[in-house]
Amino acid sequence: MTGYELVRRPSRRSVATAGAAGSFAVAASVPGGPTPTLIALAGVVALLAGVWAGRHRIVDGGALIAFGGVVVAALSGAGAMPVVFGSVAAVVAWDSGTNAVTLSDQVGGGADTARVEMLHALFSAAVGVVGGGLAFVLFRFGPTRQPVTTLFVLLLAAAVLVVALNR
């Protein structure tokens, strides 16, 4: 049958959105030194390739590597600010990337999806900024005397509470 073919691949704009977020993750890894920067860069490139090809797995893997870059930066002594916002940027890049892939699966790359994609990325970024701000406030004014393990357990408890409240 000749006719309109559904393009099951995200548009260029989707790639650009994910790329913009990803570049923040790379920038945040710079204070950790060249190695984390390169890792983050490689991850972001893989992520963008995944979005362009419309493959979930590649997007996931790329985001994981990019986040790995941020983690390595943290281990190399980067400060709280870049690490927190680098993580946020990695999550936003991954979120908008996978969202674009799902969208292209469901409605195709030919449809006008700018509005819904932008909104999704904005929500995601806003949540990240709020979460990051919360983390930063905790870092500056929180209970510095507590052992780190206690904090971790508290974090787990918070997560379990969030999930349990919604079941």
């Binding site: 943290a74 927190v84 993580s87 990240g128 979460g131 990051g132 905790l138 969030v162």
Partner: peptide, 13 residues
């Protein structure tokens, strides 16, 4: 400590 804070971000999401 920064990694723990990154985890806080994760829990926010």
């Amino acid at each position: 400590r920064p990694l723990l804070l990154a985890a806080v971000v994760g829990v926010t999401y």
